[in-house]
């Protein structure tokens, strides 16, 4: 049980780091009003945000069994 909790916390941390990166990219792109910022926001920021949210949701449906 302990190892599954740690594993989940680890995945939450990974999700958190991905989301922070996505949000920082979003903030920079919103402040930097240039056409390329829109592309970076959608392509890079969107990718990190999507990966972060998916990692978070995935951590809830794939908690490893204690005997794994």
């Amino acid at each position: 049980m302990m190892s599954s909790v740690n594993s989940m916390e680890q995945r939450l941390q990974i999700a958190g780091v991905l989301l922070i990166m996505g949000l920082v990219i979003e903030a920079i792109c919103l402040l930097w009003a240039r056409p390329i910022s829109f592309v970076i926001f959608v392509a890079l920021g969107g990718l990190f945000l999507f990966a972060g949210v998916v990692t978070f949701l995935f951590s809830h449906v794939s908690i490893p069994r204690a005997d794994d």
């Binding site: 939450l12 958190g16 989301l19 920021g45 945000l49 949210v53 949701l57």
Partner: peptide, 10 residues
């Protein structure tokens, strides 16, 4: 914090 807010911000 890890799901709702990032989607809202995005």
């Amino acid at each position: 914090v890890l799901c709702f807010l990032p989607i809202l911000c995005g």
